[in-house]
Write a protein that binds this DNA or RNA. Sequence first.
DNA 1: CCTACCGATCGGTAGG
DNA 2: CCTACCGATCGGTAGG
Lengths: 163, 163
Amino acid sequence: MRDLAKAVNLQGGSLYAHIDSKEELLFELVNRAADEFLASAEAVPVDLPARERLARLVRGHLEVVLRELGSATVFFHEWKFLSSDLQAKVKGLRDAYEAHWRRAIEDGAKRGEFQVEDVRVATLFVLSALNWTYQWYHPGGKLNLEALSKQYSNLIWKALEAR
Amino acid sequence: MRDLAKAVNLQGGSLYAHIDSKEELLFELVNRAADEFLASAEAVPVDLPARERLARLVRGHLEVVLRELGSATVFFHEWKFLSSDLQAKVKGLRDAYEAHWRRAIEDGAKRGEFQVEDVRVATLFVLSALNWTYQWYHPGGKLNLEALSKQYSNLIWKALEAR
DNA sequence: CCTACCGATCGGTAGG
DNA sequence: CCTACCGATCGGTAGG
């Protein structure tokens, strides 16, 4: 908390003129991150061909992760340390977000574009690959958002496609 | 450290009769985990067909993650807090491990079994999907190591295969 | 928003 | 391996 105070040019305790507790601050950050993921998925029209819909979800997800690498790291690592009722709120957003992905894959399967053994496992597989990006991505390298989204979309299309 | 001491029926400070520092203990755990991943990859023959080779890498990786969910979590989250020279040792093992995956995918591409735009990105994609498993897997559910390995291998085969 | 402080806990140690 | 302790740091607060 002292480091955070220093980062905004305040004395140690002065942060508490603005917030009630460390946990409130953590929740604010985590909740905001979860919200951005959800908003990016809600912006994707559901009547697109499944391939295009998935490509937009992929790009939205990676955009949030790459734009907020620091927040994403805190989000992924620290949400488990919230009290159980704050955790539940975050879980609600996360579940709503995952549902967008599950429905996109399900719809693709119904349309005959995709074919998967288990929609839940396929959804977890795809989201796992995307989430982990925060661990290895270095901004400013030659692999930008465009290039990464395109390659990941391709790999995911192939993994899910009906043959 | 007091919690750890209690867990092995010692008083707070008595742990230090066995270890030198908290960091040494963390390194021990992280290094061991990295070693187990590497050992599981080294056990896979390199002269198998690429598909089979990859399936064994997948199963080995998931076996380590599922068998040591707790250690895997600490490994993935906490290795960044080691001093830079201990970090470097862990990075060495991790790089050697990733090289096994990269070579397996490269060889598959050379044999014509696989076709990928960028081997590095494809390797990161696959390892990302596998690593994240520690976040959602619940032991004792209906999805056991066998079933998960099979489904993940299938998704990965499809993502990488030449068409 | 600062000064000055609180009790609790941290990693670790001396001496037995 | 325990007892008893160290200085540093933690999240947070009272009073201005």
